[in-house]
């Protein structure tokens, strides 16, 4: 298997706080990889470094073999690596349908296509994906009126609409009704298997991440603590200590 994402010795500090120090990880094409760690361990900072929200202090990030640590967020997004947000972000004043339509890929866009409309197939695709996450009936409602859990599902559907090669999900199940989590897990798996989207997932819900991920990285205090398959990470004494505050 070839690596689609390769992070090597990435460090990032904010003033005196070292959020990430020398973190390396690799994600192979088609994999589902988890990132866990206690609050404040640097998971979201790592995501921000990868997708270009802020420059890294040192280290390299390579996506499909090309260095991306100097690119900005929209450029990386157009290469096919998207992230979703921990605090769900959707376009609140627009209808769900419009949220979906504008999430089409923006890789090749001329001045002409900017002023054009959307073809019929794009509408159909948007409706299909809304159906996929169970929001079809609400497609003409303003996205801001949806419940938090529904907004998360919408955000996920928007990400799929963009046809990414890789998705970085920041706590996809946080704030979602436990009965819906299984549905979401199923959809994440289907997106991975059927659409071939590589997933890198930050998650606090251990049951979810142990079921979902093939490999897991555990961060603590900005450092990489452990990595391996779910079983190994779960039984790693250092991970247990980190979570229970044994350090």
């Amino acid at each position: 298997m070839t690596p689609i994402l390769q992070v090597e010795k990435v460090s990032k500090s904010f003033g005196g706080i070292v959020a990430n120090s020398d973190i390396s990880l690799r994600v192979n094409e088609g994999e589902i990889v988890g990132v866990i760690g206690p609050n404040g361990s640097g998971k979201t900072t790592l995501f921000n470094s990868i997708v270009g929200s802020h420059p890294v202090d040192s280290g390299s990030v390579r996506f499909e073999g090309a260095e991306i640590s100097r690119l900005r967020v929209p450029q990386i997004a157009r290469l096919g690596m998207l992230r979703t947000f921990q605090q769900t972000r959707i376009y609140g004043e627009m209808t769900c349908m419009d949220n979906m339509l504008i999430s089409v890929p923006h890789r090749h866009e001329s001045l002409f296509s900017i002023l054009a409309g959307f073809p019929r197939e794009t509408h159909d695709e948007a409706e299909e994906l809304l159906d996929f996450v169970g929001l079809y009936a609400k497609r003409h409602l303003r996205a801001g009126e949806l419940s938090f859990g529904q907004q998360k599902l919408l955000e996920f559907a928007m990400a799929l609409m963009n046809r990414p090669k890789m998705l970085l999900l920041d706590e996809p199940t946080a704030g979602i009704n436990p009965t819906l989590i299984n549905g979401l897990l199923d959809r994440l798996n289907r997106a991975n298997k059927q659409l071939g989207i590589t997933l890198l997932v930050i998650e606090h819900n251990m049951r979810v991440i142990m079921n979902l991920a093939e490999r897991i990285y555990c961060l603590a205090h900005g450092q990489l603590l452990a990595e391996g398959d779910p079983e190994a990470v779960r039984n790693d004494q250092r991970v247990i200590d980190a979570y229970l505050g044994g350090q």
């Binding site: 929209p74 157009r78 376009y91 609140g92 504008i102 923006h106």
Partner: peptide, 15 residues
């Protein structure tokens, strides 16, 4: 409209 509602999100989506 997307830029109005959330410009950071619009950037993150590659617009």
């Amino acid at each position: 409209n997307a830029i109005r509602d959330d410009e950071d999100k619009a950037e993150a989506m590659g617009i």
